[in-house]
Amino acid sequence: MTLTAEAAHQSAEDFVTTFHRIREEVSKFIVGQQSLMEDVLLAILCGGHVLLEGVPGLGKTALVHTISDALHLDFRRIQFTPDLLPADIVGTQVLMDRDGSKVLEFQQGPVFCNILLADEINRATPKTQSALLETMQERSVTVAGETHPLDSPFFVLATQNPIEQDGTFPLPEAQLDRFFFKLLVDMPTHDEFSEILNRTGGNQQPTIEPVASGDDMHRLGHTLREVPIDETVQDYLVRIVRATHPENEHAPEPVKKFVRHGASPRGAQAMLAACRGRALLDGRYHVAREDVAAVAVPALRHRLILSFEGEAEGIRSDGVIQSVIEHLD
C-alpha cells in the first residue's frame, strides 16, 4: 500500500519527533555521546543489533539501560563469562510436576525480552556466542526441536572491551555480520566529564520516562522503508560495498593490500536502512550520497576481515573504508 503525500509527511514527522523525544529523554542521564546515542537509536529504529566497543566505565551499559527505559521495553542483561552456557541464554527444558504428572517444560532464558544487553560478549565461549546467532537473525529460539518466537521488537546491544584480550574469544565473522552497527565509545570531553560527575555524584538521579513503545518502533521502522533512494545513490552504495573486496577492480590500493575479505550484502542492507533514517532525520525525503558515506564506517567496520599484512601493520578498518569512499568520490 502506498502512502499519500499527507500520510508520508505525517509518518516522517512522527519519525523525527519520536527520535528527538527519545534522544532528549536519554540525554537526561547520558552526558555527551550524541553521535553514539543517535547511531544506537537509529540502529534500533532500523531493527538492528549494535555492538558497542569501548573501555570499561564509559557508560555503555548505562546508555543501553537508559534507552530501554525510554522505550518502555523489557530489558534484560547478561554478563558474558567463559563458563556461561547456551542454555543460560536461550533457556532450557526442565522437568515439572503438572497435575501429578511429570512433564518437560521450556524455561525461557533471558533472551526472551525486547532489549538484551550482552555485556562483554567476547568473554563467552564461541559455543555460547553462537547461541545468539539464531536469536539475532531469526528472532526465535529452538530448543528440543521446538521453536519459540521472541518478543517483538527484539534488539541485542552487545559490548566488548577492546583492551583486555586475556581470556576472551573474538566474535566469529558470522556473529559480527549480524550486528547492524559496530560503534566505538570514546572518552568524554572535559566538560562532559564534569557534567557526568555532577549528575551522578549526588543523591538525586534523573528519572527516565518512557516516551515510546514497541509499537512505535514497528511503525517507525515501516516509515523508514518508504523513504525513496535514487538508483544513482543506490549504485554508489553498492559500489562502496563491492569496493571493500580486494578482488574488485575498483577497490583502492589499501583494500587490495590489507583486506582479506570485504563486506557482505547484509552490510549493504544495513547501510541502506541507516541511510534512510539519516535522510529523515536530516529533513529530507530521499537518500543522498552524503548519508551513504556517513553510515559506511559504522555499518562496515566490523564486516571487513583484514589480511595478515593489515593485522601486522595495525591497519584499522575505518581507514580502509574511508579510502574506499575517497576513491569512489
Binding site: H9, A12, I229, D230, E231, V233, R284, V287, A288, E290
Partner: peptide
C-alpha cells in the same frame, strides 16, 4: 542539495508521484 534534483528527476521519469516522492518534488 544532497542529490535532491537527481532523485527528483529520476522519480519524475519513472512516474512516481505519490507519498515521499510528492514530498520530495515539493521540497
Amino acid at each position: 542539495l544532497k542529490d535532491l534534483l537527481i532523485t527528483c528527476l529520476h522519480a519524475g521519469r519513472s512516474g512516481r508521484s505519490d507519498g515521499f516522492y510528492a514530498l520530495q518534488a515539493e521540497q
